[in-house]
Amino acid sequence: MKILVLISNVPDTTTKIRFTGDNTAFDTSGVQWIINPWDELALTRAVELKEAGAVEKVVVANVGEKITEPTLRKALAVGADEAIRVDTEPKDSYFVAKQLAQVAKDFDIILAGIEASDYNGSAVGGMLAEILDIASVSAVSGLNIENGELSVNRDIDGGSQVLSINTPVVLIVQKGIAKEPRIPAMRGIMMARKKPLNVVPAVDAEPRTKFVKFELPPPKAACKMVDEDNAKELIRLLHEEAKVI
């Protein structure tokens, strides 16, 4: 059984967000890039399954330019066997899904994070399944493989659901798929250099959306402290200023 883990290269969550080009593009200068946190959990689970002997091979794939290679190397250091980079700037979810479709054909399981922490599109996994014409399961919070049979846990309103799924399948995974993201060991870092990182050219695809404008949220107002014995003032502020009661 072979797993493909889709890896999105995203800015570190503590990055100060700035824009260029009259607020139409994200300013990438000085940004520290990381593996999208949900993808990192997916990768962790994939590597665990490989170590348990349930999976033969774990491959990671990303759509991005050369700057995303350190992120892919980290995925290799964590334990993926191979990496694929589709060499183009990711433009929108459809465009990315089209690019991934060309490299995702020969896998039994494709793991996609439920969203990427940059644009939070939550669309690539579903689109990819559609393009490949295979099944997809969303909101997956657990994956087990026994004797080649997949058992998948989903969180649903007020409870959870266990599904048995045929492969090939796209699993769109969220928190819970692995306990915590795995930190690569020193040995993994040294081995990562020797593992293949294949660069493939992009296929023709027209993005379906384009960025018109970015806006930063309004700055947070200062916190107002109200004396503990002045409940009336607190109620007045909540009513007249915050307008929540």
Partner: peptide
């Protein structure tokens, strides 16, 4: 080098966690 940078990131993550 790419490895040295990854070592820094990794050990920092370990140290913080």
């Amino acid at each position: 080098t790419e490895e040295q940078q990854m070592i820094r990131d990794t050990v920092r993550e370990f140290a913080e966690r």
